[in-house]
């Protein structure tokens, strides 16, 4: 009769083969990123952890991958968030200027802003500011500019001085050199301008510029076209209103808002003639 260790032998051999095959899988880290890009956090985390165990890829990349997955690993625990913080901090300390270091600084800020049970907004703002100051042209610094605008304009109490906040946020605008980041920034600022009555002219200018850059989500584009039309109407700029309303009708003819917009165009054209 086979003793227990002998019985376990096939299992051990199988595990060893599996580990070797995984270690020799050069695409394990790529697959882990693919999973993470599709919300499959658990699967991605497991792959990164395996890659770390078998040293199947760049150590910094893998650790960074583990960190960004820990932000959303379920169940979301304080321990996981603290682990992610420790990882990002370590990665920044060892090299703050490579891609991993810069991205880690951004996700450290995100961790403070979004992922903690008690968000630390001042700390997040400080980290965003550091990122913008040190690497202004990097993708994550460009993203951080819109985040600062959101925190200063939308996350402060309704009684706060929004005009002062807008002035501070607008000082960052000259740093925006990536078109998509500028588009997002403009949409955030214009929304705040409309929401908190910070100036229709300003809101209109930001919206038109965002539209010129190109809005990557159709539904948002539809909203922006109508918003521009209505703002222009409110400012007495009929030609602009007609242009944007007509563009909406051309691009979204089946929208449930099309008839309302059509009526506006008729009204405007009638008044014009």
């Amino acid at each position: 009769m086979m003793s227990l260790p002998h019985r376990l032998l096939p299992l051990l051999v199988w595990s060893a083969i599996l580990a070797v095959s995984r270690a020799s899988d050069p695409k394990l880290v790529d697959k882990a990123w693919d999973d993470a890009s599709m919300l499959l956090v658990q699967e991605s985390y497991t792959k990164f952890t395996t890659a770390q165990e078998v040293k199947g890829g760049g150590a910094r990349e893998i650790e960074y991958g583990i960190g960004v997955n820990l932000l959303n690993l379920q169940p979301k625990t304080v321990r996981n968030i603290n682990r992610a913080e420790a990882i990002f901090t370590r990665l920044i300390a060892s090299n703050p200027n490579d891609e991993v270091g810069i991205a880690s600084l951004y996700y450290l800020a995100r961790l403070e802003q979004i992922h903690r049970n008690d968000p630390n907004v001042p700390k997040a703002l400080q980290l965003y500011a550091q990122l913008i100051a040190e690497h202004p042209d990097h993708f994550y610094a460009q993203s951080a500019i819109a985040k600062v605008a959101i925190l200063k304009l939308c996350a402060t109490p309704t009684t706060a001085d929004k005009r002062q906040a807008l002035a501070e946020v607008e000082k960052l605008a000259h740093l925006l050199n990536e078109p998509a980041a500028r588009c997002n920034f403009n949409l955030v600022v214009s929304t705040a301008c409309i929401q908190y009555n910070l100036g229709d002219e300003k809101a209109l200018r930001y919206l038109i510029e965002a539209d010129t850059i190109g809005i990557p989500i159709q539904f948002s584009e539809a909203n922006v076209l109508i918003r521009i039309g209505n703002l222009a109407l409110r400012l007495g700029k009929r030609d602009i209103a007609i242009t944007y309303f007509e563009r909406f009708l051309k691009e979204f003819p089946r929208s449930t808002r099309a008839f309302t917009v059509q009526q506006k165009v008729k009204e405007l054209k009638g008044a014009k003639s």
Partner: peptide
Amino acid sequence: DTTLAALQWKQYRGKTSSETLRKISATRL
């Protein structure tokens, strides 16, 4: 955040397509 980190990393490593770029812009917005 995790989705964007992964998409952006793929772009950084050159393992990207026009579809990934579209997704980065759309997810970020």
